[in-house]
Each structure stands twice: as structure tokens, then as C-alpha cells.
Amino acid sequence: MKKAIFTLAIGDNPMYKAALESFQAYADKVGADLIVSDKLHFHINIKDPIYSASPAWPEKLFTAELLKDYDRILYLDADILVTPHARNIFEEYTDLETVYMFDEGRHLNRDLPISQINEALGPADNWQTVDGKQSYYNFGMFLVSKECKLFQLATLEGMQKVCNTVKFYDQTYINYIIQKHNIPNQCVDAEFNRMEFLGQENYKKASFIHYAGRGYRIKCPSREIRYVDDYCELYPEKVTAQERQQMKLSAWNLFIKNLSKKSYVPQMLLHIIGKPTLGRQWL
């Protein structure tokens, strides 16, 4: 059975190098190819969106093309870190007609985006519920096989209809397609998409750590700095002292750049102020 791990990494975010290293190590471990998309295959017209909306989000639809050559695809966002002790997800979840994702709707109220897309595209009858909460899968990780119809039914045109009006438009659209067409689906164990809202305790014991949102900042100034710091701790044999310093410096520089945009304080001044305090701890 031909397997691939697919991710999207466009730009020079310091997380990406570490992420791809961890993905490649996992691909070697489970006998899969690593496929990295560093350019967009789809164009979507985002204009005056009500919510945050990226033109890169439809890129996950490229999974349909990959399934022409591969039997199974594991997609991972590039802000996920695969740990060296990660279990083999391909062996854990084996039904080929089922899409496997983590159901964040069991933990977070996602009634708003669900109601928005039902209004935009017509109701998906009998939306699944778990303990009275509407099912809503996180789209940052999924395992899908050639026999599953999800990416035969999900289209760029469908995303275009909702990208400017629906919250988390790509993720919500995929959830809608699953529910509308009764596609077999199953929630994976949280260790395969471990996010901060599940708590910070022992998160590094998970197989896939997802640094979405605040990303386990835990007194750390940014998720990128936290990510790089965790990577260096979990994979000490993969980075030299010089590489470790460069990765941490790149993450710090990105933090200062973003902070400057938000505060309108010059980057040089932020470096002068921050390095003797925060920077001393993380660099």
C-alpha cells in the first residue's frame, strides 16, 4: 500500500524547517513519502471577508490529486510537530472508506460556523452530535484513503461560496461535506492532534503536537519560539548547537517583527528592550 504524508509550507516561518524534519523522520518510520507543497495550486477570491481567511487554505484540496497516485494520505499542518515516539497512525486506523480527524466540537462550541454554512449552502440534515454537541472536525490533520469520497465531493467552487462569510471557511466546508454526504468518519485519539485547549500537562507525550492558536506559549512570547524550543528538546540529535541557536534566533526575530507590526514600535528598539529580559531566557 502506497502512503504519503502531505503538508503545505510556503514562506520562511522558522517552524517549517523543524516541522519538515519531524515529518521526514516519521515518514521514514512508517514507510511513507513526504510531499511538501511550497506553492499554491488553487486560486480563491477572498474579498472583504468577515473573518480571518487565507488564500492558502484550499491547498488541502490537492489531496484529490495525490490520491490518484497514493492509496492513503496523512495531511499535517506545518505547525504540527511529530514526536520521535509517535505511534503509527496508518496501523491504528485502517478502514479505507473512513476519514479520520480529531473532533474538536466535543470540546469547543462550533455552533456558529455550522449554522453559517448551513444557511449558505442549505442544511445538512441530521448533523452528528456527541453528548449533545455538534461534531466539528479540526482540519489541521486528517488521514484519508483512495476509497473515501471526501475529496471527490469537496471542491474549490464550494469553498469560494463561503470563504468571505463563514468562520474557518475551509474547515467548516469540509465538515459540511462530511455531514451532507454522510461520509464515514471517525474521531482519532487526541494524541494524534494534541492542541492546547486540551491542557498543557504532558502535551509532549503526544504523537502529533498541534501548535494552533497560542500554541503552548506557557510564559513563552510566541508559539514559534515554543515550537522550536520543543523541537530542539525532543530531537537533540538532529540539531547542532549552532543550528539550534540559529533556529531560536529566527523564531525570536519573527516574534519581534510581528510585535513591531502590532505595537508600531521599531524592531531595533524592541530588540534592545527585549533581549536582556525575554530574549535571555529563550535565545
Rank of each mutant, 00 (worst) to 15 (best):
P49Q: 10
P123N: 14
Y169S: 13
I5Y: 10
S115Y: 03
V228S: 02
V99M: 09
H271W: 13
S54N: 08
Q246G: 00
L143A: 11
K29V: 09
K133N: 12
Y26C: 12
A53V: 03
I273T: 11
Y93A: 05
D77Y: 07
T63E: 04
I89E: 02
T98L: 01
S52G: 15
Y16F: 13
F208W: 04
Q116I: 02
E59S: 05
I272M: 15
F142V: 04
W127E: 07
H107D: 04
Q152K: 14
R72D: 15
L150V: 01
E196I: 03
T277E: 03
K3E: 11
P55D: 05
D103P: 04
D170E: 13
C187K: 12
L34G: 11
H85K: 13
Y137H: 04
K261D: 01
D33L: 03
I44K: 07
T129F: 01
A27Y: 00
Y26D: 07
K60C: 03
K68E: 15
F62T: 02
K2G: 11
Y93H: 03
L108E: 11
Q281P: 00
H41S: 13
F23D: 02
P266G: 09
D229N: 14
F208H: 06
T240Q: 07
Q246T: 15
A212C: 14
D38W: 01
L67I: 09
S250H: 09
L61G: 07
T165C: 11
Q179R: 10
Y26I: 03
V265L: 12
S22M: 11
E191D: 12
R214M: 08
S145H: 14
E65F: 11
Q267M: 12
Q171S: 07
L81G: 03
Y264L: 12
N253H: 10
K261V: 02
Q267L: 01
M141C: 05
I272N: 07
W127G: 13
G105F: 06
S263Q: 02
I273M: 13
Y227G: 01
H107A: 00
T94V: 04
D28F: 06
E237C: 12
V228Y: 00
L259A: 14
N258A: 04
P276H: 09
K180T: 01
L67M: 06
T165V: 10
L259T: 15
K257I: 06
K2E: 13
F139I: 08
Y100W: 05
T94P: 04
L66Y: 10
Y26L: 09
F6Q: 05
V265F: 04
K205V: 02
Q134V: 01
D12K: 00
S263C: 02
H181I: 11
Y264R: 14
Y211D: 05
D38I: 00
R214Q: 08
C220T: 14
R110M: 04
N175L: 03
K205L: 14
G122N: 11
A212K: 10
N118T: 05
I225M: 12
L96A: 15
P184N: 12
K180Y: 08
A212Q: 14
D131F: 00
V99N: 13
D230E: 14
A27M: 10
R72I: 13
V162D: 09
